[in-house]
Design a protein around this nucleic acid. Structure first.
Lengths: 188, 188
DNA sequence: CGCCGAGTTGAACTGAATCAAGAAACGTGG
DNA sequence: CCACGTTTCTTGATTCAGTTCAACTCGGCG
């Protein structure tokens, strides 16, 4: 059982057959730091499970690079806007550290859903989980000051914080790099 | 076929049996303006389909009332933080206009999922849809000015805009009521 | 050494909040 | 149908959080 199936198995009990059906449409590889798994404008047809390493999802707004999401060990990185709609994505997916990535080919998933309703459930649970995360983030965004957002972040993603550039974090919580730098130094 | 089943049928083709299984755990009623379908601290066990009328989901942050979501005709209103986790909700659900509401008892849904995998799919698609909406909103939040957010809003929810109080809209887009008032008058 | 990217610091500026007061709109009872 | 209080919306003045731009520091690396 590989790292990806192991991750999925924590969400639902997956019978052997369902496991191998998923494996059949998934491939794994070592991805070097700096690789772009997706560039904006492309259609995203895979979703990526980061078995080890670190990825960042970002987009451009008025030429500025805005971090939308970080995905570290045992997390998912994908351009949901494209994956679920079939339209070109506005997101880029960048690998920040040498990583082991499992990529599931979403466009081959439909027959697996048909054959294994348990996988349908798995999909539902995974989206639900991410929906709750996003809802949490949304609440933090509206009506938290820059300081509060920073404090929440170091509680929520302490490990990621140490591994990424300051500018990436700043755009993730919606403030300028300079201001984040000041907040940070004012804490001790 | 009632309004709720009709709505669901646009997402997936629902066999008769699945329809009646859903109907069995759903009840409809007329809810007068001003009713609170949920108060924060309660556990939310139902999700509500607004067949006609208007609802608002909100929470309190430092004593201030913050709108998290509007749901008008053919939309869903629920406290997802509680519904999907079983924990008490931070949200309140308020009916803003006399409404016809279909309430599905979520805690009775599990056996329906078991018996009808198509309903599992329905659940997945509904969450996916809402996830994309939230993602859209998140992007608008980060890195759009108050004006830009207002403009986006009148394009996205033109009908809701005319029916709710200014303060509700202001907190929905994360600005003060006074500032929204100024923005609004500066447009013509 | 000297360059280069990343982070820090400073000063001026600005978008938006807050506080406070007034103007409309609304509903209710007489 | 009007008078009243209550709620909602607008307007003004002040304040503040956070941005912007520019200069500077620091550590790594050819």
């Amino acid at each position: 059982m590989n790292a990806f199936i192991n991750y999925l198995s924590k969400l639902v009990q997956l019978p052997e057959k369902a496991q191998s059906a998923i494996n059949d449409i998934t491939y794994s590889r070592i991805v070097p730091k700096g690789t772009l798994l997706l560039t904006n404008g492309q259609i995203c047809t895979e979703f990526h499970f980061i078995a080890s390493g670190l990825a960042r999802v970002f987009y451009y707004k008025d030429g500025k690079d805005i971090t939308a999401w970080f995905a570290s060990e045992n997390e998912i990185a994908s351009a949901i806007d494209s994956l679920f709609t079939g339209k070109p994505s506005i997101y880029n997916i960048e690998i920040l550290e040498n990583s082991i990535v499992f990529s599931l080919q979403y466009n081959l998933l439909e027959p697996v859903f048909e054959a294994h309703p348990i996988v349908e459930r798995l999909g539902r649970l995974m989206i639900t989980h991410n929906y709750l995360l996003l809802d949490e983030r949304m609440k933090m965004y509206s009506f938290c000051s820059a300081e509060e957002r920073y404090e929440l972040l170091i509680r929520q993603l302490p490990n990621v914080m140490k591994r990424v550039k300051l500018g990436h974090i700043a755009s993730y919580i919606g403030i300028s790099q300079e201001h984040l730098s000041r907040i940070r130094t004012s804490y001790k």
